[in-house]
């Protein structure tokens, strides 16, 4: 390795498109406000403590605390701010209809009533707290959990999720509930820990871009990955291409499928497959590979021996995608070695 190799590596890693964050300025302002408020509170508490002749001041007694990592975790204060309006990189114009905030402590459940005009709706979420995937609130449309708006790990970067609602009623109630976590269930002891976090949650309606944007190319699947060998791949652009068809050599060993997408709505795509006579349970989401290691999420399928194996599938998207195409690629891997494991 030379210094030039190191320079090339750093540029390659950093110079891909960084995740867009149109709310950055608003979030910085909120951070400044929180710091000022915290200083005022700290000063007030310090004065009170002095007056009380040396009573100990515990950090946990303050409304906002700073973790050992220096990250602000607002225990009862609202989370990061969300912009009133913004334009996504592909040209879609977003307008905020309602906004609220909830936390692990304080108010943990809020309901918003938003008008349904026929324009597509998204939930936006930004979080101040621990970045754990099991530390997420649930989204309900009316009384039913939303299958499309599933909040990911806590991040200060604004995340947009599709919100599928019935068009008929003129308005809809959206509830955000942090009294339970989205992926927690019986036996998941880690979920018992109440990790401090504060979420700002907004409902936006968006107007599609006038012209469809061209999604970036999708990176090629690695030829080999942890004992798997790429046997074939196919690609397309949603919504023009909504059918997957692949033919690979069948060796009687397991087959694993994975999918990568690009475009603003890449994470909203959903794939269902049929491999020979097998139909894997459920659907698979699409990974986005912009930098770093291959974000593998392989779906494994047992297959019978045969000369050729036909894989078919369907591509679908959560919510509206008008003029917001998504480039997708599906890869099929077979096990290397002879055991099938």
């Amino acid at each position: 390795m030379t210094v030039q190799d190191l320079r090339d590596l750093l540029r390659e890693r950093a110079d891909g498109p960084p995740p867009a964050n149109p709310a950055r300025l608003a979030q910085v302002r909120a951070r400044v406000s929180r710091t000022r408020r915290r200083r005022r509170i700290t000063t007030g508490v310090a004065v009170a403590a002095a007056v009380a002749a040396g009573a100990a001041v515990l950090p946990g007694a303050l409304p906002d605390t700073v973790t050992p990592g220096g990250r602000t975790t607002a225990a009862t204060a609202p989370g990061p701010e969300l912009p009133e309006s913004f334009t996504a990189p592909d040209g879609a114009a977003y307008r905020r209809l309602a906004v609220t905030s909830i936390g692990r402590s304080g108010e943990q459940k809020k309901t918003l009533t938003v008008p349904v005009t026929g324009r597509p709706l998204d939930v936006a979420v930004a979080c101040d707290g621990e970045g754990r995937a099991d530390n997420t609130p649930m989204v309900y449309v009316g009384r039913a959990p939303s299958p499309s708006a599933r909040i990911g790990a806590c991040s200060s970067r604004m995340e947009l999720l599709p919100l599928v609602v019935s068009q008929g009623d003129g308005q809809v109630e959206i509830t955000f509930d942090a009294t339970r976590s989205g992926v927690c269930g019986p036996g998941m002891t880690a979920c018992d820990e109440a990790v401090p976090a504060a979420w700002t949650l907004g409902v936006y309606e968006w107007t599609p871009p006038a012209e469809p944007a061209d999604p970036a190319p999708v990176k090629e699947f690695p030829a080999r990955f942890e004992g798997w060998k790429l046997a074939g791949s196919t690609s397309g652009v949603w919504p023009r291409d909504s059918v997957v068809r692949l033919e690979i050599e069948g060796h009687g060993r397991k087959v694993a499928l994975d999918q990568l997408c690009s475009g603003e709505l890449a994470r909203r795509m959903r794939f269902t497959y049929r491999v020979g006579d097998e139909e894997p349970a459920g659907g698979a989401n699409c990974g986005v590979w912009e930098s770093g290691a291959y974000p593998a999420a392989l779906t494994e399928v047992e297959v019978p021996e045969g000369e050729r194996l036909v894989i078919t599938g369907e591509v679908a998207a959560w919510g509206e995608t008008t003029n917001r195409p998504v480039r997708w690629s599906v890869g099929a891997y077979t096990r290397t070695g002879g055991s099938g494991e």
């Binding site: 754990r132 990911g152 990955f225 942890e226 974000p295 593998a296």
Partner: peptide
């Protein structure tokens, strides 16, 4: 804190 899923793949 990380925004990546816990079981991020490790490349050969």
């Amino acid at each position: 804190p990380s925004d990546t899923i816990p079981d991020v793949a490790v490349l050969d």
